[in-house]
């Protein structure tokens, strides 16, 4: 056990990364923040629509899309990867709908069947073409956020100005566009998430919104893929949004809290990983989980403790003698 958990050293865990390895630390934390923000913002709408597990499904079934794109384009270029991911995302959505609307299989089972089949296909493709597809199965699952720094990645420069490593810049663009899209289609997303019938009467096509959301989800997932891997993307999709939902009931506040949550879990997660010397993406998710637990227990309106306290107070007040006249 002593070997497993290294001794806690404030200097090593909190100060050294920022003073000695600033270049590494900054980009990794920034990448974690961007991934958690983009995923969290989209994830909020998944939670509202009770489609959290569709996000899970898409984050898995993107694998064959990427594998096929690699095989066809023969490169790790961004465009084929995005196109493959989009195609896979749409295919998953259509498959799920086809299975559960065209037969008596329920939606949950349909999700399970669709994404496992596609994921299996992806794993087989990759293992058959292991030499041609430069894709590590484990990397696909876990991701490696440590490789996003300028030390291992080419750097984007625009007009002499150094912006940063390619994956981080790409993720930043995706995150910004996510924010913009949500701002632009705020009303449409809101109405179609809460009340599809009202959306229809307002002239908003809920089906189009559904597919658009799924497409954008695929784009976000594939860009987050490299950093956190397929399975931890689902954590980033659900955890920040779920934590925010425990703290507020107003969507704008929830969206804002999601961003704050993303920043907190990225930073604390990085330090946790430095301390325990473990997977950085994993530690970020663990911290997001810890934040959720905190909100679950202490949330002022819905937390376990405040509610318990309120109940005790009400009971005491009711049983107080002065109430009985």
């Amino acid at each position: 056990m002593n070997q497993l958990i290294p001794p806690f050293d404030f200097e090593r865990v909190f100060l050294a990364p920022w003073t000695q390895h600033f270049e590494l630390t900054f980009w990794i934390v920034l990448m974690g923040f961007l991934v958690a923000t983009a995923c969290g913002l989209v994830g909020n709408y998944l939670i509202l629509r009770r489609m959290a597990l569709v996000g899970d499904a898409i984050s898995h079934s993107i694998l064959p899309g990427i594998a096929v794109a690699f095989l066809l384009a023969n490169s790790r270029g961004t465009t084929p990867m995005f196109l493959g991911a989009l195609a896979a995302g749409v295919a998953t959505t259509i498959l799920i709908e086809a299975i559960h609307k065209r037969s008596r299989v329920k939606q949950d089972a349909a999700i399970g069947i669709a994404f496992t089949s596609l994921f299996a296909l992806g794993v087989i493709l990759i293992s058959l073409y292991a030499s041609k597809v430069d894709l590590d199965q484990e990397c696909v699952l876990y991701g490696e956020i440590g490789f996003v720094t300028p030390l291992t990645q080419p750097v984007v420069t625009v007009g002499g100005l150094t912006l940063g490593p390619v994956p981080v810049v790409r993720m930043a663009v995706v995150t910004l566009v996510t924010g913009l899209l949500i701002a632009m289609f705020y009303k449409e997303l809101l109405v179609s998430s809460f009340d599809p019938a009202l959306a229809f009467s307002l002239g908003i096509n809920a089906t189009v919104m559904h597919y658009a959301l799924m497409c954008w989800l695929s784009v976000v997932v594939v860009s987050a893929f490299e950093a956190v891997g397929a399975i931890l993307v689902i954590a980033m999709l659900i955890l920040p949004g779920a934590t925010a939902a425990l703290l507020s009931q107003r969507l704008p506040v929830v969206l804002l809290l999601t961003v704050v949550n993303a920043a907190l879990s990225a930073t604390t997660g990085f330090h946790l990983a430095t301390w325990l010397d473990c997977s950085i993406a994993g530690a970020m998710v663990v911290m997001a989980g810890v934040l959720f637990c905190l909100a679950w227990v202490f949330s002022p309106t819905q937390g376990l403790l405040p509610r318990q306290w309120q109940r005790t107070r009400t009971n005491t007040a009711l049983s107080a003698p002065e109430w009985i006249h």
């Binding site: 489609m51 931890l232 425990l246 994993g282 998710v285």
Partner: peptide, 22 residues
């Protein structure tokens, strides 16, 4: 909480898995 089953499942799945990965 007010969270629905799908969110609860996804959250537990992800958090436990992350602990496992670490």
């Amino acid at each position: 909480t007010r969270l629905k089953e799908d969110t609860a499942l996804g959250m537990v799945l992800a958090t436990f898995f992350a602990v496992g990965v670490c």
